[in-house]
Design a protein around this nucleic acid. Structure first.
Lengths: 342, 342
DNA sequence: GGTTAGCACTCTGAGCGGCTGAGTGCTAGA
DNA sequence: TCTAGCACTCAGCCGCTCAGAGTGCTAACC
């Protein structure tokens, strides 16, 4: 059930102050900072009630209060005032984008680094993927008599490459011919259509190798979250007082390893529309119990897209973080839309 | 001038013990561990002499001795016994290579991670580069009416891509035609030859855009050390007692950032033949004053190659590290030689 | 009944002193 | 030239005390 207005305001102040100072906030400190027309004794009573509800705790008897995970959740869902970025902040971010080149890959790297710098936490982004990946073009380059480099371009403008070993000798001419034939036959198809299609004429040995490799590539690209996310600002994260102890720091460093994160990003929670906030143990994965994700989808709704956001301690300025994540996701989406002409 | 035999042996023991224990080694501890037929008092006298020579110091009056940078240098140059890896160690390493796929890019990543794991320090590797990069093949894929994706394959099997914006409308057919013409004309050429070549027939506007982009790509690939090195095992490094303090840890984390390292790897010190050891302040770059690099070149002498090695605290098992770096570099070189048929 | 002043109680963290153990440098004798 | 002995040093640990911040409870007040 919802909290009374006053109690809610007190919880919000506790969260705000704690986010700010990283030290437990006591009743006297609270009334001193926020002129809320109440004595510290009254605030203490309210705090005791909030503690009964499980929204705050204290680390030991004579310490101030800190929000529990449930407290953050309540704050985020019911108390937090969403605000947009100021004109100034927007311009700063846009400026960084416009200064840089117009390559998709660079945008991704730029977005994640802009995000990390503006909220002083670790930012992450997954590479953009099409919902349905289609084959755009195949190219084969001879490396030796029985070996060639296969380059595949997919509809999300990703380029994949692989070395192929042929059971027979091949020349650049035969490879070029094979490439043209495959392009004509399979260009624009998805993996599913690929598999469904019967070979109209029996494939040669070399061709079979190529087709198998292309299918494998498309499937890998299709599979969700195969690529490890790009991570930026780990040091911003580790500078937070939560990780002042070097053991904690090492553990956290392990948790934010790209390969670990690949499996653990709760991208299922990210809807089309808005920013998802996953607080502490809402994410089942072990090492993130005292951290929160703030994630958004980016990319045009029907096109290539991915997830970007922030990973930080649960003690995080959620309002500000949400605004930044949303804005950067929007900017990136807009860039991609212009790029793809979607 | 060289040390007396006995004094050298004592220095070597000090280095060995200190590398092992990370605590200053005292005279009594030394005689207890190494049965060298001398009393601790005699060892103390020798230690005082070694300190006069600037090869060891002590952090405070009543502490044992630790090697200075000059001490490590003397050890490495004159005292250290080089040993090869055991059969067992070699097999473990080879096994990891043979288990993995046979892509050049994967080898690079594998080498650096094998290295980091076997010496428990941070390993780094620069991407292989040809001494002379040649254009292998160009491909153009239409993205929209005035935009195309340019894919360039260079002689070191690297694939580069870039989006191009044309001042005129283009179709996939015209792009394909343009690609074939460029391949015929410029395939196999280096940048230098590229620039020297007069245009045999005046270039169209679209063609000029492509040529400019290709030249730019080749130059970037040609330029030394453009790509940031791949780094692995930062956590192994930070686990060393040197970085037990969280501030030190953050500083070090900053120092081993790939972009910082790109500028700072003392690759000039790496000769063709053997493993280079750069101790502490022998590297002028600031943040590495109390760290050492152990580096080797990899790749067939005339072909694509790079630098790989270890970055760790000056307190490092140099003998073992050198053996590992050398072996992994050899394995990688051999793999590349087989791959390129060189 | 909600609010507040007052008070006893609790707990952390900083500061201080003493002690121990490992180590040194020096001197004198073998 | 080596070694035994001795006085001296210093970091690190332990235990102690104390101040400060905070709590919960009770009784009085509006």
């Amino acid at each position: 059930m919802p909290l009374s207005d006053r109690r809610g305001r007190i919880l919000a102040f506790i969260v705000d102050d704690y986010v700010d100072s990283a030290t437990p906030v006591g009743s006297q400190a609270l009334v001193a900072r926020h002129a809320l027309g109440l004595s510290s004794a009254t605030v203490r009573n309210e705090m005791a009630a909030l503690e009964d509800e499980g929204l705050i705790t204290h680390p030991h008897t004579s310490a101030g209060r800190i929000p529990s995970n449930r407290g953050y959740r309540y704050y985020v869902s019911s108390l937090m005032e969403e605000h947009d970025l100021s004109q100034q902040e927007r311009l700063t971010i846009l400026h960084q984008f416009h200064q840089s080149a117009r390559q998709l890959e660079e945008w991704v790297g730029l977005a994640v680094s802009v995000l990390a710098n503006s909220v002083h936490n670790m930012a992450l982004i997954t590479q953009p993927r099409m919902v349905e990946v289609r084959l755009k073009q195949v190219q084969l380059v001879e490396l030796s008599e029985t070996r060639a480099l296969l380059v595949v371009v997919t509809s999300d403008a990703a380029v994949h490459q692989q070395t192929l070993e042929f059971p027979v000798q091949v020349s650049q001419e035969s490879l070029t011919r094979m490439g043209s034939r495959l392009n004509a036959e399979f260009g624009g198809k998805t993996v599913a259509e690929f598999a469904a299609k019967d070979a109209p004429e029996p494939l040669g040995a070399a061709e079979a190798v190529v087709v198998a490799a292309v299918v494998e590539m498309l499937m890998r690209e299709q599979r969700a979250a195969v690529e490890a996310p790009v991570v930026e600002g780990v040091r911003e994260l580790l500078r937070q007082p939560e990780y002042g102890d070097s053991d904690r720091m090492l553990d956290t460093l392990e948790a934010v390893d790209e390969r670990k994160l690949r499996e653990a990003i709760p991208s299922g929670a990210v809807g089309e529309a808005d920013v998802a906030i996953i607080i502490g143990d809402e994410n089942r994965a072990g090492p993130y119990q005292d951290m929160s994700f703030v994630l958004a989808r980016y990319g045009p709704p029907s096109g290539a897209g991915g997830v970007l956001g922030i990973l930080g301690p649960t003690r995080m300025a959620y309002g500000d973080t949400v605004a930044h994540v949303r804005y950067v996701a929007d900017v990136l989406t807009q860039l991609m839309r212009n790029f793809y002409g979607d």
